[in-house]
């Protein structure tokens, strides 16, 4: 049985580095681990040994239990089409001038493709643990809602209404529904632009059965995953984390823990500057103890108001550049529910 850990959280809180550190720690404990990451910084990618690699899991040269894969955040609709449309339609879709634009601008399609690919790795049963770093859009929440959204988009009432009936009959479409819309569009856009777009949507519609079926499978995989919500104590990420923590039980499961990255030692909050210190040093002491107090406050909000399990990862100034650095990151972490996250090996 493959265990899955999903790392969610607002942009900029360190999700990718944390996911990598979690995977390295597990691998060094003898767990065959795959980390699936999105857009890592160059130094982190090189630490994971995935500088030039694509979305196929690659074994790490120095750590026999560690594999890494990088999701292509641009793959999206192309991947959906190739998987679920018949070859002629898939080619036409991929060649469509709106295809690239559509996949760039419909975030759910990117999240769907990423979730689909991640679920494939989990279902392969080749690893004991799959750690998934969720894509930046929507802080990872998209990841859970994308399968349903995608099925809704390609099979939704709206598109069915435009494309007409269960079969994509073009004549039906132009005659019954689209013509008034297109005539209106022509007044404003002045060309057959939207007509070309609608052809694209009709092709997309044929992928519905495949997308809907696969979507349900992906949702099952995601429901069985352990979820971590990563945040810092800054007000903006904290309010995002609160939102995730409250929404996730409805769309997936209760998060296993809220992890505060860049945590300071709790004792710092009560540090009074020694009267003999130079002014500049006293100022720094006052700043960092205020910061520690804020962190305690943010943690308290989660543990007391929401009954969440709270974990901390110490603030380390240097970004890890190798496996040892990544492992060090979590060595002094507190409260991470390891027994829940890691399979018995």
């Amino acid at each position: 049985m493959t265990k899955t850990v999903l790392v969610t959280g607002a942009g900029g809180v360190g999700k990718t580095t944390f996911s990598a550190a979690l995977a390295v720690t597990a691998a060094r404990r003898g767990v065959r681990t795959l980390v699936v990451t999105v857009d890592p910084a160059r130094r982190l990618a090189s630490a994971l040994g995935i500088e030039h690699l694509g979305d196929e899991p690659q074994p790490h040269g120095d750590e026999p239990n560690l594999w890494a894969a990088m999701l292509d955040s641009m793959a999206s609709w192309r991947a959906v089409a190739m998987r679920h449309a018949d070859p002629t339609v898939a080619t036409r879709l991929a060649d469509n001038e709106f295809f690239q634009a559509a996949s760039e601008h419909f975030p759910a399609s990117q999240a769907y493709a990423a979730a689909d690919q991640a679920a494939t790795f989990v279902q392969a049963r080749a690893w004991d643990l799959v750690v998934i770093d969720t894509p930046p859009s929507g802080g990872g929440i998209d990841f859970f809602t994308a399968p349903a959204q995608m099925a809704d988009l390609v099979g939704g009432r709206l598109l069915r209404w435009i494309t007409g009936g269960p079969l994509p009959g073009r004549r039906f479409f132009y005659d019954r529904a689209a013509r008034p819309v297109l005539r209106m569009a022509d007044t404003i856009l002045g060309s057959g632009l939207l007509e070309r777009v609608s052809e694209f949507l009709i092709d997309l519609r044929t992928t519905y059965d495949g997308v809907a079926r696969r979507g349900r499978e992906i949702e099952r995989v995601l429901r069985d995953a352990s979820i971590l919500v990563l945040t810092t104590a800054d007000p903006a990420p904290v309010s995002e984390a609160v939102r995730f923590y409250r929404q996730l039980p409805d769309i997936a499961s209760v998060p296993a823990a809220v992890v505060f990255n860049r945590s300071l030692p709790p004792a710092w909050s009560s540090t009074v500057p020694d009267p003999g210190l130079p002014a500049a040093a006293s100022h720094v002491v006052a700043q960092w103890s205020a910061e520690t107090l804020r962190q305690a406050d943010a943690r308290g909000e989660f543990s007391t108001r929401y009954g969440a399990r709270v974990a901390t990862v110490p603030w380390q100034p240097d970004a890890p550049t190798d496996l040892a650095g990544l492992e060090t990151l979590l060595r002094e972490a507190e409260g991470i529910p390891w027994s829940e996250l890691l399979p018995d090996v």
């Binding site: 601008h105 419909f106 435009i162 939207l194 777009v197 949507l201």
Partner: peptide, 26 residues
């Protein structure tokens, strides 16, 4: 379109929206 009551044609506007979603730049 100088149609102040276009809300009543909500279905058409929604269809237009679905098409516009897929069009680059629109």
């Amino acid at each position: 379109l100088r149609l102040p009551g276009l809300g009543r044609f909500g279905a058409i506007a929604r269809a237009f929206d679905a098409l516009a979603t897929a069009a680059p730049a629109v």
